[in-house]
């Protein structure tokens, strides 16, 4: 394992071979915007929010999918990047039906928080208003596809951490949607252990605990790192 030195936003940082730009930046208090990255499960580069400029590369790179190299010079917060992220966010908002005022996650939503952080105050592309399903067949949880941004956090967590692999993405383009098992109602899933991990990691109000009212669904994402790393490090008592 060799150590590599690189520059991110003008600061020298070091990481271990195989680390991603996102992770090294994170450990050095540079928080790159992200939606699909989730500590504890593998990265897939689904949302492109974490785009950065790498000197010498003509294309932008998703920092969660870019491994560090010796002498790399990375910029995470330029005018152009801010504009692209804003547009990405507007496209996400226009693609689904994100009506915050009636959402269980209003006030506790990563999508909403990031939109605010990026300064999105209106959407310049036409809203698509797609017709999407709501699945309330599960005894404990609900899925509202209208709020799904296809980040696949739930897919990866259910697969990698719970080991059930209930979820996956089906279809493509505008028809892309989440499916449980063979597309049956979630409540009929033979594989689901009802553990609720997917609900906790979902960045939006797409997955929620039944019975939550508007703004009531607060999620705990720290548990995942605790489970994954705690096991590796034999750290059985949650840090305060």
């Amino acid at each position: 394992m060799s150590v590599k030195t690189l520059t991110i936003d003008g600061k020298m940082m070091t990481g271990v071979e195989g680390d991603t730009v996102f992770t090294v930046a994170f450990h050095n208090q540079v928080q790159i915007p992200r939606l699909c990255h989730l500590g504890g499960v593998p990265d897939v580069g689904a949302c492109r929010m974490c785009l950065v400029e790498v000197e010498g590369r003509s294309k932008l790179s998703a920092s969660c999918m870019t491994t560090i190299e010796e002498g790399m010079v990375v910029r995470t917060d330029t005018e152009q990047l801010r504009e692209y992220r804003k547009l990405l966010m507007e496209l996400l908002l226009a693609e689904g039906n994100h009506v915050c005022s009636v959402c269980v996650s209003n006030g506790n939503c990563e999508l909403q928080d990031l939109a605010t952080h990026l300064g999105v105050d209106h959407v310049r592309v036409p809203y698509r208003h797609p017709r999407r399903e709501v699945d309330l067949s599960h005894e404990r949880f609900g899925l509202d596809q209208n709020r799904c941004i296809a980040c696949t956090r739930c897919v990866r967590t259910c697969d990698e951490v719970e080991g059930a692999h209930v979820w996956d993405m089906a279809g493509r383009g505008e028809k892309l949607h989440l499916v449980a098992d063979l597309g049956e109602p979630w409540g009929n899933s033979e594989n689901c252990t009802k553990c609720g991990k997917c609900v906790q990691v979902c960045p939006t109000g797409a997955l929620f605990t039944k019975g939550s009212a508007v703004g009531e669904m607060e999620k705990d994402r720290s548990f995942l790192k605790y489970i994954v790393y705690g096991r590796e490090r034999h750290q059985w008592v949650k840090k305060p």
Binding site: V166, A170, V179
Partner: peptide, 24 residues
């Protein structure tokens, strides 16, 4: 659906993965 289930079982894959590929 029965066919997909059979394929998932025999190839040792999660059903949702099989459906994902079949709809892609």
């Amino acid at each position: 659906v029965d066919l997909l289930k059979d394929v998932a079982k025999k190839l040792k894959l999660p059903p949702s993965r099989v459906l994902g590929v079949a709809t892609f």
